[in-house]
Design a protein around this nucleic acid. Structure first.
Lengths: 210, 210
DNA sequence: TGTACATCAGTGAACGCGCGTTCACTGATGTAC
DNA sequence: TGTACATCAGTGAACGCGCGTTCACTGATGTAC
């Protein structure tokens, strides 16, 4: 399939390993993400990955970073596709966040649960999440200045939104919601309703519902 | 310490094992919850637990059920301690939920992440979570009738609240928040602010902030 | 109250498993001449 | 262009580890008489 793989005996193994890691996450889940399984999928011996990652930790970290990049990209893209109404842009990137998490549950989980990462590995992610929160805060502040988001500490507001979204996708991904839904409303309509509730709650009193 | 333990050679081992399991969760975390470690803590051989649990799954399930009972009790107690204002009672049980999760992070995690439970084990929990959601929904409906909660589908509202609370405690328990907080505001004040935002967002337009 | 016996909770050795990691190796690659 | 050689990506055997689970056992308990 991929051209890089067959270039020579050893092709672009690092990428192939990350690709295999993703497949493992999608098909087995986080607990299946082992050096040996990834090597198996990539068609190499289980010692081969150690040419590209000193550690299991380093492999997992690479997967996580790749996830954050991918998420960031799609959020930016969705945001850019919306006319320049800050609140709608903010909502669009929120929707993109949720969709990323729902479409890549295991990847998302590895990114946020820290199950597979040693504590030193965790530390190297702090910068990433701090940057993400910072952007949310500045989005909110902008919306407040425009009068479309209610007054209040933007950090708290950002944490509340983050909590809701993270909680929703965690519950869905851990199968804690599916069996609760009896009426024919699909998961997507629940997703939309929850997002609407967040942004309604966030909106200033006079702002129209989006 | 406990009296039951020293009654005879084999005392109330089942309880002792559950107690040990809790200690493991608090001190090591979910990934440390193994039959062998629990037996070690209880001071018995690692084959002994099989007299009381057919499976690791059954042990984990017992721990989870114990957790749900404990959480349920504290929520009921907090609710009962509040004068009969439905919205405040609802908020009180929400606060109790958050506190339980923050005080017993590993226990909470095992209850909700399903990491350690096989899929058959998961199924036996569905009844519990369905009942919990059902109660939330009826609380909300009651508040709507009293005019203190805004109109709308109560299931969606319940899921939104559940998502926010679950997301918040998950982020805190996975250490995804601590490093984000720079100002001297403690975790508790953030917790309160988030809870306030939920219930403000939930309140009807004319209802006073609680 | 005393004795014989059945029960069954807990023991410890053993099993097979998959894991992360190491290490001496080999053989294809790229490079210097 | 052709040859000799150094490099280094990938191999496969081996290590020690902790796990879940099984099994023949032992010895304290409760009970029948």
């Amino acid at each position: 399939m991929t051209t890089a793989k067959e270039k020579y005996h050893h092709g672009d193994l690092r990428s192939a390993l990350l690709e295999a890691a993703l497949a493992v996450l999608n098909e087995i889940g986080p607990q299946g993400l082992t050096i040996r399984e990834v090597a198996r999928r990539a068609g190499v011996s289980h010692a081969a990955p150690y040419r590209h990652f000193t550690d299991k930790d380093e492999l997992v970290l690479a997967v996580v970073e790749q996830g954050f990049e991918l998420m960031q990209e799609t959020m930016q893209a969705e945001k850019a596709a919306v006319p320049d109404d800050p609140l709608n842009q903010f909502a669009a990137s929120g929707l993109a966040y949720v969709n990323f998490a729902l479409e890549h549950p295991a990847h998302y989980r590895v990114m946020f649960s820290g199950d597979l990462l040693s504590s030193t590995g965790q530390v190297s992610l702090q910068h990433t999440s701090r940057a993400a929160l910072q952007e949310m805060v500045s989005n909110i502040t902008e919306c407040q200045h425009l009068g479309v988001v209610r007054e209040g500490d933007p950090v708290t507001q950002a944490l509340t939104i983050l909590s809701t979204i993270h909680g929703f996708v965690s519950l869905v991904n851990d199968n804690r919601i599916e069996h609760l839904i009896v009426n024919p409303s699909s998961l997507e309509s629940i997703r939309d309703a929850v997002l609407t509730m967040i942004f309604e709650g966030l909106g200033s009193r006079e702002a129209a519902k989006y």
